[in-house]
Design a binder for these strands. Structure first.
Length: 399
DNA sequence: CCTCCACAGGAAGCGCAGGAGT
DNA sequence: ACTCCTGCGCTTCCTGTGGAGG
């Protein structure tokens, strides 16, 4: 037996040509089905080429609808025009999550050796304005996942006000978000300035998803190694789940890996089905592992009840087991005390429930007829053993 | 019909951490 | 270095609600 060379390992023996093409970070040369949206963004941004200010633009759409990719593409085109006085900055607010960090990042963009910290916000602000004014810059600032900025009202206000303070040059904003309720949280004044122009990205339908997958399959897989019906299935699953292209791609990637490991030459429906299950569980596991400890205990308590066959205080609704809110709370309290923690009040417990439901880990219905009082019935959305396993690893191995 | 049950969820306020202003 | 301010996680208190039970 001779040890393989790196060349052997890199030379994909299976059905893939290039896995990177299927990763969510890969941006194809041509974005499909987003011509209209790209045109709209270009229209909002175009004034900058004629020496005036671009319009502020707010973009909303669910994950995997091509928002970021479209914006990035437009910004690239704009930079390719090669106009000196135009500056574009794209940043993700998950990383730069306060107005301070955003400004700081902007400044390091034109002045890379600017000291990292220690300056007051006002000083940063002036520094940025000086640069814009001195060089007569027309600045476009694209903020992805803008909803994660803590003092957003402040940031928007500061940046829009900047235009009043500037003699020359100007600043405009592109905000990108996937939170629906985000707009209502904004102060009316920042809302009207940020949402000067608005653009909504609709989810892809099954046909469009299929088109996108086909585009990537050509580059990512060897010829004829993805079955037509596997393609249809992946796009159908993703279409019913929010029309998320990222998810569709992940499904196909995982299905390919499964086919590979089973030494199959072609990706089939069964691989996709299996991939979906794995992807779902991965997602749940990831969500659970990032949960605060209290919510993990709560979930663990519910899973214990769901696993206990002798436990009878529950409602069965065609095979689905529903548990009483009060009972789950008591189970949670017991678990807290057992692990040496103070349980939160029931009021706060209810808030926890709401969060867990939002994350899709549980679902809740009102008790309705047949049950005394007015309570909530809770159902665990994933297999109790798996939930417990995921939490045990985190909760009981760390201390 | 009234009362009780078993909660739901709003309002106010508290202690703390961290950031901004001075 | 200091105070002041603000947001966050949480508790306390309270009113509301839909159905069961007498």
């Amino acid at each position: 037996m001779v040890a393989p060379s790196f060349g052997d390992i890199l030379d994909e023996k299976g059905i893939f040509l290039d896995k990177r093409v299927l990763s969510p970070h890969y941006t194809p040369d041509q974005l499909l089905y987003r011509d209209g949206e790209i045109t709209s963004i270009m229209k909002a941004v175009a004034p900058v080429l004629k020496g005036s200010r671009a319009k502020n633009l707010f973009i909303y759409g669910k994950t995997g609808t091509g928002k970021s990719a479209s914006v990035r593409q437009v910004l690239q085109k704009l930079e390719a025009e090669g106009v000196q006085e135009i500056a574009v900055i794209y940043l993700n607010c998950k990383v730069y999550d306060s107005r301070y960090k955003v400004l700081q990042k902007c400044i390091t963009q034109f002045n890379p050796d600017f000291a990292k910290t220690g300056y007051s916000f006002a000083l940063l602000y002036e520094k940025l304005l000086d640069w814009v004014e001195e060089k007569n810059i027309r600045l476009i600032l694209a903020l992805d996942e803008i909803d994660t900025v803590k003092d957003l009202d402040n940031l928007v206000y500061t940046l829009t006000r900047a235009n009043d303070d500037l003699g020359k040059g100007c600043v405009s904003l592109i905000g990108i978000s996937n939170k629906i309720n985000f707009k209502q949280r904004l102060d009316p004044r920042s809302k009207s300035s940020l949402c000067e122009e608005e653009l909504i990205f609709q989810p892809y339908n099954a046909q469009q998803l299929k088109g996108i997958l086909e585009q990537r399959v050509k580059k990512g897989f060897k010829p004829n190694s993805v079955g037509e019906s596997a393609l249809n299935l992946s796009s159908a699953i993703a279409a019913s789940d929010n029309g998320d292209a990222r998810y569709a791609l992940l499904l196909l990637l995982r299905a390919g890996e499964i086919a590979d490991s089973q030494k199959d030459q072609v990706v089939l429906d069964k691989h996709v089905t299996l991939a979906q299950k794995i992807a779902d569980e991965d997602k749940a596991y990831e969500v659970i592992s990032t949960l605060p400890a209290q919510q993990q205990i709560l979930l663990y308590g519910l899973a214990t009840l769901a696993q206990d066959v002798s436990y009878k205080r529950l409602v069965e609704d065609n095979g689905e087991k529903l548990y009483f809110s009060g009972e789950v709370y008591e189970q949670y309290s017991r678990l807290c005390k057992k692990t040496g923690r103070e349980p939160r009040t029931s009021r706060w417990y209810r808030e926890y429930l709401g969060e867990l439901e939002m994350l899709g880990l549980i679902s809740m219905v009102e008790s309705g007829k047949g049950i005394r009082g007015h309570t909530t019935l809770i159902k665990l959305e994933y297999a109790p053993e798996k939930v417990k396993k995921a939490i045990e690893k985190i909760l009981f191995t760390e201390n």
